[in-house]
């Protein structure tokens, strides 16, 4: 059996560091020692294949048993590719988010904003053959958090993606264009490179917008690609 190709190394300026003093929770939790660079084996090159029979899809978060959630209905859609542009088909994407008032349906969230009985805030789907996905949901509200005085998280939707290799596992957050809180958010701003930050900001798209129904936002996601030069960096 041929050795699996390694995945491309992430550019450190395009990823958040583990240590970020501005994001207070990192201080007790981020490891102090450097990780050990490990060769890519079948453990990292393979990943679970999820069967929708056991991982049921929920594409429409904007209603529950036919009852509409409160807030601004939106469409969030995009394409999942690897770095070389190849689409990732049949990948499981999960999302979770606050409701329109900025409150999660979660016992740990005690923000004084109303819960919506018709909004659970969780979704799951599988990308199609072209790596495309599409959710309908409600635009999440901003909410305060305890990081520093008067700290507010920008509107965001959490995304979790499983690729073809466990080394491609990605959890990120999608933001909204024009949000004044982005410039102030410690989590968003831990990413050093401005272009990489902007790629977490969805784009309003008229083509995704459904007349008389909902605005459309595009959020494309890129997973680490395979490295064509497998034996550099002592990977042999």
């Amino acid at each position: 059996m041929a050795d699996p190709l390694p995945f491309r190394r992430d550019d450190p300026t395009h990823q958040p560091p583990l240590h970020a003093p501005s994001y207070r929770s990192t201080q007790g939790r981020a490891p102090l020692l450097a990780p050990i660079r490990a060769p890519i084996t079948v453990t990292e090159a393979s990943a679970p294949r999820f069967d929708p029979a056991h991982y049921p899809t929920r594409l429409d978060l904007s209603r529950l048993e036919g009852r509409p959630a409160l807030g601004e209905r939106i469409i969030v859609a995009g394409r999942l590719t690897e770095e070389d542009g190849r689409p990732v088909a049949n990948a499981m994407i999960e999302i979770w988010q606050a409701n329109a008032a900025g409150r999660y349906d979660h016992p740990g969230d005690q923000h004084d904003a109303p819960l919506d009985p018709n909004f659970l805030g969780r979704g799951r789907l599988f990308t199609d053959g072209n790596g495309e996905y599409r959710f309908e949901t409600i635009k999440p509200g901003a909410y305060p958090w305890g990081n520093h005085h008067n700290a507010w998280r920008p509107n965001h939707i959490h995304f979790g993606v499983h690729g073809a290799g466990s080394a491609q596992r990605l959890i990120t957050q999608m933001y909204f264009p024009g949000d004044p809180l982005l410039a102030l958010d410690p989590i968003f701003n831990t990413i050093p490179n401005a272009v990489a930050r902007e790629r977490l900001v969805s784009r309003f798209e008229l083509d995704l917008t459904v007349p008389e129904y909902a605005l459309g936002y595009r959020f494309d996601i890129v997973l680490r690609g395979r490295d064509a030069t497998p034996f550099e960096d002592g990977h042999a």
């Binding site: 606050a98 999660y104 979660h106 740990g108 959490h158 959890i171 990413i191 977490l200 890129v222």
Partner: peptide, 16 residues
């Protein structure tokens, strides 16, 4: 370039 990671946060249990 691959998409940047962001923390899972305290409310990931919505996916539990």
């Amino acid at each position: 370039m691959s998409t940047a990671h962001q923390t899972v946060g305290p409310y990931w249990h919505l996916l539990e």
